[in-house]
């Protein structure tokens, strides 16, 4: 009877179970690590994609709203007062930073218009850099996944095929039933690598383009605002 059980087990569960989960659990430890790493990379890059998409659309909405308010002829003091209470972002943060520097300089009684202009420009630059950095942060991760993901997957595939060839040579059996699961599990790594890399590349291109546009818009606003402030300085002095 035990012999019957053994042969039955051998016959029923050959190595040909190729569902995704069983493929993963049959895989070599290196292939497992590669698959897990690629899965994590995919999760993380999609998190970045979602986050950045939401952030950019929100930033664009805020800029639109702010520009509308800014060019509506409202007093800059009122605008500054309404905005300085909360942590601004985007264009508002640039405006708030410049206004703060302006007010501080006047409160301190500074009378050098050149120094004031220089300080305001510096503050604007710093704020623009900070905002752009916030926009573009983690985009490089997408670029990395996009370029390195296929290679990582290929590494897993090569390793898996290597180990499956070793298994073939050990079992001295070249039938497809022996070869196929190992190769399938190896190819799973490449598939995951591509699965992670393709959206990452596409999203990187799209998001970095968008971040560039937002940054240009911020710089444009900063230049305009700095021109306004410079006019104000000339009038005051």
């Amino acid at each position: 009877m035990p012999i019957d059980g053994v042969t039955e087990a051998v016959l029923i569960s050959p190595a040909g179970d190729i569902s995704l989960i069983s493929l993963f659990f049959q895989a070599h430890i290196v292939v497992k690590a590669v698959i897990l790493g690629l899965l994590l990379a995919s999760v993380w890059s999609w998190a970045i994609i979602v986050d950045k998409t939401v952030l950019y659309s929100r930033t664009r909405r805020q800029m639109d709203r702010f520009e509308k308010v800014f060019w509506s002829g409202q007093s800059l003091e009122d605008l500054y007062r309404s905005l300085s209470g909360r942590t601004p972002s985007g264009m508002a943060s640039i405006f708030v930073a410049a206004m703060r520097e302006w007010k501080r300089s006047f409160e301190a009684g500074a009378r050098s218009p050149i120094g004031l202009q220089t300080r305001i420009e510096k503050v604007l630059d710093v704020t623009i850099n900070r905002e752009t950095d916030k926009l573009e942060r983690r985009l490089l991760f997408l670029a990395t996944v996009g370029s390195a993901g296929p290679f990582v997957g290929l590494f897993g595939t090569v390793w898996g095929i290597m180990s499956s060839f070793q298994a073939i040579s050990a079992s001295k059996n070249t039938s497809l039933a022996v070869v196929a699961p190992g190769i399938a599990e190896a190819l799973l790594a490449t598939a995951l690598g591509l699965l992670a890399a393709i959206p990452a590349v596409i999203a990187y291109n799209k998001l970095s383009n968008e971040a560039g546009r937002i940054g240009q818009r911020l710089e444009g606003f900063a230049d305009e605002f700095s021109a306004i402030l410079s006019r104000q300085i000339d009038e005051r002095v």
Binding site: L20, I21, L39, W46, A47, D51, V54, R138
Partner: peptide, 21 residues
């Protein structure tokens, strides 16, 4: 600050893997 994106991404991946399985 990445939390909502991360949660969304993880959920979508889990759903996809479960569906694939």
């Amino acid at each position: 600050m990445l939390r909502p994106g991360l949660i969304v991404s993880a959920i979508v991946h889990l759903v996809l893997i479960g569906w694939g399985a």
